[in-house]
Write a protein that binds this DNA or RNA. Structure first.
Lengths: 157, 157
DNA sequence: ATCGTAGCTTACGTTGACGTGAACGTTATA
DNA sequence: TATAACGTTCACGTCAACGTAAGCTACGAT
């Protein structure tokens, strides 16, 4: 860690982490219960201590929940995949023979592709919806222009 | 209605409408309870009769629910806006003075813009996510290529 | 030392969005 | 005209995702 950064050890208490993630403390405890986010550490007295990485994880969970509409069960599955992916990445970087590295890479690419397909499908549907709304807006603009013209044509009918 | 089309009177029974919309009968009755979709008519005996327009409305509701993540309360608000918009459209087409038509148009455009902004925001976030996933995919592809090269360089190490 | 704030566990409550009978009426068809 | 399939209205059940209250503990400032 470079000098200048204070570093991101397990310094955040549950309230602080919750606020940064935009959720409640209860939600954090609930997520932990589900195995979604386990705090990086604990104080001597047993209080949860979160890192910035934990907060990032929380934000990712909210994104998957609110943006993609997954339920927490599906999110758990996804996060497990990503955790596994991170583990694979470590193993990958640690070296190992080429065959193993290829295996790892293949799995990573597959996981990525699955999520990508879901996101893309959703985005495309949103795009279609947006296009529809845009067409309506355009029609309205045309009508508005016509009205202006009509008004100008007969200023005081 | 042109000859050739049977027309879309209130012909669908609840089971048929439900199937076409991809939901359960219970859901239709529930939506009616919430004032989201009131069947276009009823049989002599009191059975609900839906039109194709009702089914379209149902599909729109599902879209708002699943794609945009609105709850049924928010959807009710949106649908009310759209109903009002349709009413305005009728009033608009019926004529009326220019000032009134401009008012109507302004309101319609405002309603449209609100929804459009929400959809666009969501789509942009999805786009960002997709871009991120794409970048990861690209890195993986590069790594895969490197691995192939390494293997070719030392065929039988 | 103490006192207020924050955190901990346990456990029951709540809200949205339906699912699932029960008991009964309606409709299409053989 | 019988009868199976479909419909109706209550009304209670369920599941996820938390909210909330109670009773107790830990830590930071005065």
């Amino acid at each position: 860690m470079g000098a200048g950064t204070v570093g991101s050890a397990a310094v955040l208490r549950i309230g602080e982490a919750a606020e940064q993630a935009g959720v409640s403390c209860r939600t954090l405890r609930y997520y932990e219960e589900l195995g979604l986010v386990v705090p990086a550490g604990h104080s001597a007295g047993g209080a949860r201590r979160y890192t910035d990485a934990d907060v990032a994880r929380l934000q990712r969970i909210r994104e998957l929940q609110e943006l993609l509409g997954f339920d927490l069960g599906e999110i758990r599955t996804i996060m497990r995949s990503e955790d596994q992916l991170a583990a694979l990445r470590s193993e990958y970087q640690a070296g190992g023979d080429v065959a193993r590295r290829k295996e790892i890479l293949a799995e990573a690419m597959q996981i990525n592709a699955r999520l990508r397909a879901m996101v893309k499908a959703k985005r495309d549907r949103l795009d279609a919806m947006l296009e529809d709304l845009g067409a309506r807006a355009k029609r309205n603009r045309v009508r508005a222009r016509d009205l202006e013209a009509e008004e100008a044509g007969r200023p005081a009918s």
